[in-house]
């Protein structure tokens, strides 16, 4: 596994980079925008970073950072405390082993993200159906579409920052 061949210091550094990016994204996602009478919010955008979490990052630190960012996101968005922490951590636990050794191209990553979001949406909608809670399905689908559309931007920023870090290291 890739994570096992990386030195512990580098693995921790990767996790911290991910955590820092997550902190920025969580804070930005808590802000919503009203353009020409249409409210736009970016609630599911942090999930992009869970999907693009640094592959060789230290797992223990990654879980701890995602837990903290999840709690912060809960406070910022007013959801029940622990909700986003559960989603972020479970997301990482499911995603990481499947993508561990794959350096995927943008197209593969995007399709992978869309698939993951679809599965996640199906599970949540199923739970909503079972618990008979009135989830705003239209809003839910809009949020997923926004996250899918924002994915290329986050991916591009990640590639840019990564290239900066690599050139700094050289």
């Amino acid at each position: 596994m890739l994570a096992d061949t990386i030195t512990p210091i580098r693995a921790r550094a990767y996790a911290l980079q991910g955590g820092l990016a997550m902190l920025v994204l969580v804070t930005l996602s808590a802000v919503n925008l009203n353009l020409i009478g249409t409210p736009l919010s970016f609630l599911f955008v942090p999930l992009i970073l869970v999907y693009l979490w640094p592959r060789g990052a230290d797992k223990v630190l990654s879980y701890c950072l995602l837990f903290g960012c999840g709690i912060l996101f809960d406070v910022l968005t007013g959801t029940a405390i622990g909700f986003w922490a559960l989603i972020f951590m479970t997301g990482l636990a499911v995603i990481q082993p499947t993508l561990m050794n794959r350096e995927a191209t943008f197209n593969v990553s995007w399709v992978g993200f869309i698939t993951w979001m679809s599965i996640w949406a199906a599970i949540l909608l199923g739970l909503n159906f079972i618990s008979a809670k009135e989830l705003d399905i239209v809003n839910f689908i809009i949020q997923i579409c926004i996250a899918i559309l924002v994915f290329p931007f986050v991916y591009a920023i990640r590639v840019y920052v990564r290239s900066l870090i690599i050139s700094e290291a050289d």
Partner: peptide, 17 residues
């Protein structure tokens, strides 16, 4: 660590409802 944090988050989720 994952199981521990998962349980903590789960506990917090139910207590904050």
């Amino acid at each position: 660590v994952f199981i521990l944090l998962f349980l903590v988050a789960f506990g917090l989720f139910f207590s904050s409802r």
